[in-house]
Write a protein that binds this DNA or RNA. Structure first.
Lengths: 205, 205
DNA sequence: ACGGAAATGTGAGTGACTCACATTTGGGCT
DNA sequence: AGCCCAAATGTGAGTCACTCACATTTCCGT
């Protein structure tokens, strides 16, 4: 898949995305065919697939991989890998402004709704976070964490975050709050919740 | 999908499963068509789909849902939900004998291998554990845990377990050991809750 | 404005999955 | 053993996601 970064291509991509979200919202995911989306966007089926590798990709693209991996790497190396991923993700979330949150929220809410009539989407979402999982695991492994441990830690945190997003209540609170809440649930109960604290003993090296 | 519990049906199912595993193993997942599998099993494509709802289902069927949900429910209610799921899964694993472990191991190893040339399988595996996630979350919610918290706890533990199985090393140790190790990684490092030693490898960076 | 690369279209094809309906087969019962 | 009926399987045709090789258009920079 070549870049598709030209102004024209970006416009086309946006049109496809809009058309897809509208159709999915109005008539459901399974009931909407790729050809319908393409037609509504004034485009061919072929062009659709040039912009999105699969039908689900319209819903589950996920640009946050490198940001998170970096934040994880920035956590102190002495921590157990799971704790390191958890704190890294919390730190990364703190840097996401409420601006793009609005559009992301609409996307997430739609996926959460559609998921009921198209359970296959759950798999698609996880498959999409696969890249993020790889990035985190690689980052940890680069610091000496055993690869299997790194992967397990990443998978657990991402699983929790994904579950929180898909089960999102319809209140107006920012997405990051839901994920933060989820990650806190995985932490030690005695942990003072905000930034400064440790309580997870056992430092190494 | 009616039951398909007749002796004859069970034989057919076994033939399809054998044929599928053989073909996947020899020529890869994507390169194997459902029709090939059906032919090799002396059966029609239609019959294949009557026994397995999708092509991936041959690889990722998962009969352990109720067992795990029950074990989770049996853990003390005072614990935080995440800890309750973690201990419940560890308890459930302890009850699985090494007998069926052998066949399960072959299946898991095959999926882990195939996953490299067919990344879509990762999503399929997770989608298959969706039922288990639901069962655990429902069980917790029945005891008063907020639904969202329950789902997050279940997702985190299942994510860790799945990651451990898919990244399984080829040593001869039982599957349960790998999952146990993964779940221990999510616990507090000073934890002595369950018997035995982890020997969590102390690696240097 | 213009040349050329990047984006899009065409047409045909494959494979997973579904449905309505006809046909066979096996196994419980007497 | 042998009938009989339900359960299992087959037939044929169809839909939709996704792919490829190649022709054609569009617009962006110089």
């Amino acid at each position: 898949m070549a870049a598709l970064t030209t102004p024209r291509a970006l416009r086309t991509r946006a049109r496809i995305l809009d058309a897809a979200l509208d159709l999915f919202e109005h008539q459901g995911y399974d009931a909407t065919t790729v050809t319908q989306v393409a037609d509504a966007a004034g485009v061919t089926q072929m062009t659709f697939f040039r912009h999105f590798p699969t039908k689900d990709a319209v819903l589950v693209s996920d640009p946050y991989d490198p940001l998170i991996a970096e934040a994880v790497g920035a956590q102190p190396r002495g921590l157990p890998p799971f704790e390191r991923v958890r704190r890294g993700m919390l730190a990364a979330l703190a840097t996401i402004g409420p601006v793009e949150d609005a559009t992301a929220r609409r996307r997430v809410a739609l996926v959460a709704r559609l998921q009921r009539d198209a359970p296959a989407l759950r798999g698609a979402v996880v498959a999409a976070t696969g890249a993020t999982e790889d990035a985190i695991a690689d980052r940890l492994a680069a610091d000496g964490t055993p690869p299997l441990d790194a992967r397990v830690a990443a998978a657990a945190c991402l699983g929790a975050a994904t579950a929180a997003l898909l089960a999102l209540p319809d209140d107006g609170r920012p997405l990051a709050d839901a994920v933060t809440h989820a990650l806190r649930l995985l932490g030690p109960p005695d942990d003072a919740t905000t930034t400064g604290t440790t309580a997870a003993g056992r430092e190494r090296s």
